[in-house]
């Protein structure tokens, strides 16, 4: 049973931040609510004030320019991203990721800002965005700051945001030349979260050598994490199956998964190694042919 709360409906982002400043830890932002309402119903979260930003037009936008990349307002729904022709052209992996995120109903109502702020290590967007070097702009009544997703997640369900801050924008830098990102999760049902997930971005130099690599693991630790050892294996290497294999092994060694009923720790590491190998290779193959 959800515990009683006072419902607040701000008319603008600014007003929302004012409310948040006022109520701090007792207030909770709701947007799509697709994750929040579940835990509220279980009685795990009992905010006194719920600040609804779902309908805020000033946070619902998507823009792209070749210099700054993609900017999405926090209340942009998953479905909007999935259906955007622009996103499909510039960041096809985002569309692929969204198509696999839960079900249409959830994507219709759930938002990108809400998903990232919920900080579930098994969430889909975080690994992909992190792998592409994405960041979030968070705001409070006293100002704004941009936090790289690399630094955003501090612990299970915890972020670097203060109690008076909320995500207002998601930023994805422009895709470099000869670069591609691939994402896959391992799940039992199509609509499930990943038992583990891997996003890989590979950027090649002119000679086909790996100039940069960003490997991000989902649900392989208490937060979404970079697999930096795996990246080291890849960066500077002439890529081939043996290198991908090694990168997979490195990622499996450095991740910190926990066991649950769906997979043991050992099996999770095994899956991380397989998916890392596969995604790095898939990204490499696409990077070779991309402009």
């Amino acid at each position: 049973m959800i515990s009683d709360f006072t419902y607040l409906k701000p008319g603008s982002a600014k007003e929302a931040l004012k409310m948040l400043a006022e109520h701090q830890d007792d207030g909770k932002i709701i947007c799509g609510g697709q994750s929040l309402l579940i835990i509220m119903r279980q009685g795990l979260v009992t905010p006194e004030y719920v600040i609804d930003i779902k309908k805020l037009k000033d946070l619902n936008y998507m823009t792209f320019d070749p210099k700054d990349g993609l900017k999405m307002g926090a209340t942009t729904t998953h479905r909007t991203i999935e259906k955007s022709a622009m996103v499909k052209e510039k960041y096809p992996v985002l569309v692929e990721m969204e198509e696999k995120l839960a079900s249409i109903q959830v994507r219709n109502w759930g938002t990108i800002g809400g998903n990232l702020a919920h900080a579930d290590a098994a969430g889909d967007p975080a690994p992909v965005l992190m792998s592409m070097g994405g960041s979030v702009k968070v705001a409070s009544a006293s100002g704004e700051r941009v936090i790289s997703l690399d630094d955003f997640y501090t612990d299970l369900f915890e972020t670097a945001m203060n109690h008076d801050e909320m995500i207002v924008e998601v930023i994805v830098p422009p895709r470099p030349a000869k670069s591609a990102t691939k994402y896959q999760k391992f799940n039992l049902l199509d609509s499930d979260q990943g038992i583990v997930a891997v996003a890989a971005t590979i950027t090649l130099n002119g000679g086909g050598v790996c100039k940069d690599a960003r490997i991000v693991l989902g649900n392989a630790a208490s937060t979404t994490i970079r697999a930096k050892e795996a990246e080291k294996v890849l960066i500077g290497a002439k890529l081939d199956d043996a290198v991908f294999q090694k990168a997979g092994e490195a990622a499996a060694a450095e991740c910190q998964p926990v066991a649950d009923i769906h997979a043991s720790e050992e099996y999770r590491r095994h899956l991380i190694s397989i998916l890392t190998k596969r995604m790095a290779k898939a990204a490499w193959e696409q990077a070779k042919i991309s402009g």
Binding site: L156, S222, V258, A259, I261
Partner: peptide, 17 residues
């Protein structure tokens, strides 16, 4: 109880920390 819903994952990660 409801805590058990979160179960293993939370507990282990928390224990680690």
């Amino acid at each position: 109880g409801k805590l058990a819903m979160f179960g293993d994952r939370v507990m282990r990660s928390k224990a680690n920390e």
